[in-house]
Design a binder for these strands. Structure first.
Lengths: 333, 333
DNA sequence: TTGAAAGCGCTAACAT
DNA sequence: ATGTTAGCGCTTTCAA
């Protein structure tokens, strides 16, 4: 049914070995033969079968990418960069959503292994996956997950440091009562934020009110609810840190609903750019997420790991930068 | 190096055929043997090699998805639905960005063919690709591209009808001078909008000012520029239709900059939800894009096509619905 | 420089 | 019910 290398060989009156050499540009082959073969390929419309090649070569030139939600902009930006990097080396990207379901996550990784992808890039939503990940032999890179740093190559922004920096930034502006609102408590990335928050308080000798720390979901609704809750407190924070741009957007909506002025009545800082400044006369101060960088590095790392399967675990910890807007009030000290 | 079916067979003291039967649950195999095989699989940590299976079966259980930008929310929402549909039938998704580059587009499709994907889903950015698409034998589904409807299975929202409906809606509200701002002129989806726009004018006997029609890019910046241009006209439109939510966002920003009140001074309607109403006290009237539906249908269609390669071309034309906000002023007639 | 042939891991037709 | 074996399309060693 499909044209094979054998058909080409017959048509060009050469051996399959010669055809293979021509296709791959390996070995030396006589000018005349080469032309005949190329003509035959043209005439028959031959396309090399990568499946057969993969079987023979034990390499599929495919990278599997498993993230919780392939429609989440954080991951799609990263995926785009990954694809951009690996395509240059003739790799393709197999993408799956794990829907934050640990079972699905394992199934997907197993599927990747069965499909014999050459490398896997993951951002697991639970640390349970760690031992499973340790058991697989396919090269793996973890993105945005500090907890896997001893298990496989990892690249992530140091969220503890990010939060630490933000808190210190606020302290420097004279704030002494600040809140933090972020995603699920059991995601390490939120635990990191939590640690940075605590450490900053400790290092600056500022007492910490536990009620100022709210874990929930990375979405607008939780941002709204959390803002209302924090702002309704007797002694409400003078500044609140949002664990994501969506949460920060929730803040803005709720602040508007409650007629609370930012930054006059409460300051806001976000993880990642909110990007609505042109629409709302307010530039939210934020710390960079480095999505593109993460994607690029993850792509580089997986290729590197495939090339050198036995080199020691590689680790790339990125540091975010605070981009100042006008959402933080400065107190006279 | 890797455990194969042969190793399992040896370890369990059976033939490879028996192992294969156990793995695939086909044919009948004695209870005792089955157990031995399963134990061997466990002990050796055997994972079936899908590459070999694919070669043998001439089926990879993989769908290739090629869109212009895998970080564009329109496509990622669709991709998510596609993956959701096909995973249930044990298919995986290979994703590539074509960056609106026709050359890359062809390369990607060729790559898909070489990788022997069982089906391809595309949303080409140029009609040039049509003849190329016609030449391939792999089952193909086109999304959001009316022009391919005679070449392969297609699913799209009828943008001509959408625009027609919007224009009529505005006429009914008493508008007689309306503008449209959309993406690239050479994208059929914009040509469709154009046609609907013209037809609505014609059918309603309303004269059309060509200067009211602006083609450009599907982004915020173009939205801003176009709004400024249209609104600066001597006799500016009383309503402007945005070809995408990003363009509409540009309108909002520029309206704010120019201190133009919506809908008092100019009405706005958008293709797709802008989704900022909570933040700006304005619900932009829009027509639905049906992203999820497109993705789901595309997934169904490609599976169906794979099952029945020779059935006649299938076509699913969806109709958007106008969701009324408060961005359109009603004139007394 | 070129070709013959083995073998990658699997499925399934055929034989037992 | 189970095993033997050919063959999917390719790469590559080895021999010529």
């Amino acid at each position: 049914m499909n044209v094979t290398i054998k058909d080409v060989a017959k048509h060009a009156n050469v051996s399959v070995a010669t055809v293979s050499r021509v296709i791959n540009g390996l070995g030396s082959v006589d000018e005349g033969l080469r032309n005949r073969v190329e003509k035959a390929i043209q005439e028959l419309g031959f396309m090399p079968n990568h499946v057969a090649r993969s079987l023979k070569m034990s390499a599929t030139n495919t990278i599997g990418v498993a993230v919780s939600d392939i429609s989440n902009p954080f991951f799609t930006t990263i995926a785009k960069e990954i694809e951009n990097v690996i395509r240059k080396k003739s790799y393709s990207m197999l993408m799956v959503s794990t829907d934050s379901d640990i079972q699905k996550e394992k199934e997907n990784i197993s599927l990747f292994e069965s499909k014999r992808v050459d490398g896997i890039i993951v951002s697991p939503d639970s640390d349970e996956i760690a031992e499973f990940l340790r058991s697989i032999k396919t090269p793996t890179v973890a993105i945005d997950r500090k907890t896997l740093k001893n298990i496989c190559d990892s690249v992530y922004v140091d969220k503890e440091k990010s939060m630490y920096d933000i808190a210190c930034y606020l302290f420097n502006k004279g704030h002494r009562n600040i809140g933090m609102v972020t995603g699920p408590k059991d995601l390490s990335t939120n635990y990191d934020r939590f640690n940075g928050f605590i450490k900053a308080h400790y290092d600056n000798g500022i007492p910490l009110d536990n009620e100022n720390i709210l874990f929930g979901k990375f979405d607008t609704k939780f941002g709204k609810d959390a803002f209302a809750q924090l702002f309704s407190k007797e002694n409400h924070p003078t500044a609140i840190v949002a664990g994501s741009a969506l949460i920060a957007t929730g803040f803005l909506i709720q602040a508007k609903n409650m007629n609370v002025k930012i930054p006059e009545e409460v300051s806001v800082v976000s993880f990642g750019s909110v990007g609505l400044e042109e629409l709302i006369d307010l530039k939210i101060t934020y710390i960079t997420e480095l999505r593109s960088e993460i994607g690029q590095i993850a792509g580089d790392m997986i290729l590197e790991r495939i090339k050198h399967p036995d080199k020691p675990i590689d680790l790339r910890i990125l540091q975010g930068t605070i981009i100042e807007g006008n959402s933080v009030k400065s107190f006279q000290i």
